[in-house]
Structures are given as structure tokens and as C-alpha cells.
């Protein structure tokens, strides 16, 4: 099964409403805001609405230094009563697909190894003296039998004009998995979900 035109249309429609990354080091911060907003659009729950400043506190964001991913889940969860924040390493692509497909879950934020930048054509990332680059944060939108379609915030960082219009990024499943979870350094995945309501019958069992 290939990625269909309706998948692309759905992607563009969602992404056009995303907040644009306005600083080089805010891909986690803005990514979090975007997946919260998108989930809120679907499930209409005001507890998912956050001001940018509040998210900066939740992510322990310092300009230039970025965010702390360690404390993010518990600090965000402390602000939510009807949703959980999940953050896990060592997931499979099937798990990722399930998160994406679930109506009660946000799109996931996924950390990709710095080698991801070698796969990019529309912008260039140079490393410094010690050869180090930062891992990147992207938002997967669709996984089919052989490819993963995802949102890379740097694409729109470099777009001119108002609306986010950069085409989606695509990688083969193998390549994506290698950059996400398959290399020596494990990479995390984070999403927000509403726990499934238990039925009365299930509660009584």
C-alpha cells in the first residue's frame, strides 16, 4: 500500500495549522505545542490548550540551550487531569503506527539520530569542531508497508511566507527505524493520550 493522495492532503491540512518553529532550538517545544493543538482540535478538550510561555516552563526551556526531555512527561502530566503523557524508548514501527492511528492519542514526537540530516536536501546541517550535531525532533503522520511520512519542523523554518507549505518528508521504513530506534543510541517517542474509558461491566469484573 502506497501513501495515498488523501494521506498527503490530510498531512497538509493538519500541518497548515501548526505553529511555525521560530528559533533553531525549539523543535521539541513547538512540536509539543503542535501535537497538543492537533489533539485538541480532534477531541475538543480545553486542558490541552497551552500558551507558549507555559510550555517553555514545562519543557524547562532555556534559549540556546533547549529543553529537558527527562522531566517533560511528569511536568506536563501535572497540568492534565484527563490525559496521560507517555514517553518510551525502544518501540517498534507497528507501535508507532498504532499511536498515529488512534483517535484518542496525539501524533507522536519522535527523536531521530543526528545522521538524519544526511538524508535532507532542502537544508544543510554543518557540525562544529567536535563533529557533533543534535538529534532532531519530527512528527510521523503515516506509516505504510514501506515508507514513513513525517513532518520535519526545519522544512517550514526555512519556508518563506505565512502558511506552512513545505512538502512532507518521507523515508523508507528501514531508514526511519535505523535513525529512530535501531542504532546504538536509543531514541525516545512521546505522545499524549486519553486513557480508554472502562465500561461498567469491565469495572465490575
Amino acid at each position: 500500500m502506497t501513501i495515498s493522495q488523501s494521506d498527503y492532503d490530510r498531512y497538509q491540512s493538519k500541518v497548515s495549522q501548526f505553529d511555525r518553529q521560530n528559533n533553531e532550538d525549539t523543535c521539541l517545544l513547538i512540536g509539543l505545542k503542535n501535537i497538543l493543538d492537533e489533539l485538541n482540535n480532534r477531541v475538543e478538550d480545553s486542558e490541552l490548550e497551552f500558551e507558549r510561555d507555559d510550555l517553555e516552563d514545562i519543557c524547562d526551556y532555556y534559549p540556546g540551550f533547549g529543553c529537558s526531555a527527562e522531566f517533560l512527561p511528569q511536568q506536563l502530566e501535572a497540568e492534565l487531569t484527563r490525559h496521560n503523557v507517555e514517553k518510551e524508548s525502544e518501540r517498534e514501527l507497528d507501535d508507532l503506527d498504532q499511536i498515529i492511528s488512534s483517535e484518542s492519542k496525539s501524533y507522536p514526537l519522535v527523536e531521530l539520530d543526528q545522521q538524519y540530516f544526511e538524508e535532507v536536501d532542502s537544508y544543510q546541517v554543518q557540525s562544529g569542531t567536535h563533529g557533533r550535531k543534535l538529534p532532531h525532533i519530527v512528527i510521523p503522520f503515516k506509516i505504510n508497508s514501506d515508507r514513513v511520512l513525517f513532518f520535519d519542523p526545519y522544512e517550514d523554518f526555512y519556508e518563506i511566507g505565512g502558511e506552512n507549505g513545505a512538502p512532507p518528508k518521507e523515508l523508507t521504513k528501514t531508514k526511519f527505524f535505523e535513525l529512530w530506534s535501531g542504532r546504538a543510541e536509543k531514541r525516545w517517542t512521546l505522545w499524549i493520550e486519553r486513557p480508554e474509558q472502562r465500561t461498567l461491566g469491565a469495572t465490575n469484573e
Partner: peptide
């Protein structure tokens, strides 16, 4: 030129 270059600066 809009060559879209991000440098990951290593401060040491």
C-alpha cells in the same frame, strides 16, 4: 542566497 544552513556550534 537563502541556502538554508544550520550550524551546530560546539562550544566545547
Amino acid at each position: 542566497e537563502r541556502d538554508n544552513v544550520i550550524k551546530h556550534i560546539n562550544v566545547g
